[in-house]
Amino acid sequence: MSVQQETKIQAGKPKSNAKFLKRLNAFKAWLYLLPALVFLGIFMVYPLIDVLVYSFEEGYNSASQTSFGTGWFNYAYVLHDPYFLQAVKNTFIIVIITVPLSTLLALLISLALNSIKKLKEVFQTIFFLPYVTNTLAVGLVFMIMFKKTPYTDGLINMILAIFKTGPIDFIDGPYWAKMFVMCFYTIWVVLPFKVLILTSALASVDEVYYKAAKIDGTSRFRMFTHITLPMISPMIFYLVITGFIGAFKAYSDEVAIFGTNLNSAGMNTIVGYVYDMLYGDSGGYPSYAAAAALILFAIVFTITVVNLLISKKTSIR
């Protein structure tokens, strides 16, 4: 008690001191935040505004940094660019094929994983391996396995030959073949994450529900549809939504298989188009890139909102 009093007296006027301390603390807090604020400001907030500006600046010249007006021209240009339309088509095909297929496949694999005890961890570890590998590197391996050259038909064609089909050039051949490789590789790449999430979702369903259902003579199919699915449905929706977003942004997997010149391979994606407009052989048009990126953002945003609405509706039911 007496010590406290002493220090108070020494500290002088306690009231203004407290105020000062509070200010000092607030100042310190901002100091801690400063690095994050600076980086986010320069590399996230400012670009966000800037990209909108770019998309409406007509005839922007990146060398002289001048433009001759504002308007919807950039959007119009992008929407009439056959490369962009091809990219949109490719992206949509990839999304529509890989999202449902990879989710289903992941569900199947997770169910299998969850029903075994022996070797479960080994399988889990193996299945997760693609997540930690460099997409570009493994993509090259896929390319080589699928590619048909004058010297060899490649591994996949060798297998196809057993079934008396082929040979097909998956890398430089018909569109559907290229798309097949693309979707196959995409699924190979995205599956680890989905399997991981679904396996832990399945494992978190209390065993006792299955025991109860089993005693009541519930068939395995009914257990799945009436117990498992409703209980893991939030996770499935999460995966579908993130899957949609991820698939719409497909790009590096395409580069991995078909190389950097995606337009000539006819396998470009929307994101690829954005980057091509920005930089590279056809680059130097940040305005077109901005318009394309905003169109992509609008598409992804709409689909996410629709997904969320559906998930809300089903979960209420």
Binding site: F43, M44, P47, Y279, P286, A289, A293, L296
Partner: peptide, 12 residues
């Protein structure tokens, strides 16, 4: 999405 801001960052 990072795709949106990367354009300006590239220019910056």
């Amino acid at each position: 999405p990072s795709e949106l801001v990367i354009i300006t960052n590239f220019v910056t």
